[in-house]
Computed example of a mutant assay.
Amino acid sequence: MKRTLRAAVCSVAVAGLALGLTACSEAVDQVDKAVDETYEVTYEVTGKNIDSIEFHGGGGKAMEPKIESVSKPELPWKKTVTLRGIMPAAVMPVAADPEGSQITCKIIHKGKVIEEQSTKGLVSAGGCTAESPVAG
């Protein structure tokens, strides 16, 4: 009887392990697919006295995106980029002006504003960051 019980327990354990590995394999496949999927966003920045704009332009790794930069941008500024996988969309306009500055940034995906921020002040570092639509 002990032998039969031991065999049954081992069979259940092996079956559970196989199911667990299958579930893990499916999860890994989904992550791989999400990492390779691309999406497009448009960054828009308006305001006055903006010194530079930094943004995720699509290069680098998902958790370490390459930051691109534009100095003394002509406003309003607009840029469409293709991002990959779980990489967040981000645009960071920066202004330093003793008279004050105004900054508004937007991130648009498929015609819909998914993030918008505005700021005023002596030294402004306004920014917009949005989660990847692929991730969620």
Results as ranks from 00 to 15, higher is better:
41 V>I: 13
41 V>W: 02
42 T>E: 14
43 Y>A: 01
44 E>P: 00
44 E>T: 13
46 T>D: 06
47 G>W: 05
48 K>W: 09
49 N>S: 15
50 I>G: 05
52 S>N: 13
52 S>W: 09
53 I>Y: 02
54 E>D: 14
54 E>H: 09
55 F>N: 00
56 H>T: 07
56 H>A: 10
59 G>W: 00
60 G>A: 10
61 K>S: 15
63 M>V: 12
63 M>P: 00
64 E>D: 11
65 P>I: 02
66 K>L: 11
66 K>A: 12
66 K>H: 06
68 E>C: 06
68 E>V: 04
68 E>P: 04
69 S>T: 11
70 V>T: 08
71 S>M: 08
72 K>N: 13
73 P>G: 06
73 P>L: 06
74 E>M: 03
76 P>V: 06
76 P>Y: 03
77 W>I: 00
77 W>T: 01
77 W>M: 01
78 K>Y: 00
78 K>Q: 10
78 K>V: 04
78 K>N: 02
78 K>P: 01
79 K>M: 01
79 K>S: 00
82 T>S: 10
82 T>C: 04
84 R>P: 01
85 G>T: 07
85 G>W: 02
87 M>Q: 11
88 P>C: 12
89 A>H: 10
89 A>Y: 05
92 M>P: 01
92 M>S: 09
94 V>E: 14
95 A>R: 11
95 A>P: 05
96 A>W: 11
97 D>H: 13
97 D>M: 10
98 P>D: 14
99 E>H: 07
100 G>Q: 10
101 S>F: 05
101 S>Q: 12
102 Q>Y: 14
102 Q>T: 13
106 K>Q: 15
106 K>D: 09
107 I>T: 12
109 H>M: 06
110 K>F: 04
110 K>Y: 05
112 K>P: 04
112 K>A: 14
113 V>W: 03
113 V>F: 03
113 V>P: 03
113 V>G: 03
114 I>C: 07
115 E>V: 00
116 E>K: 15
116 E>F: 03
116 E>T: 13
117 Q>A: 15
117 Q>D: 15
118 S>Q: 14
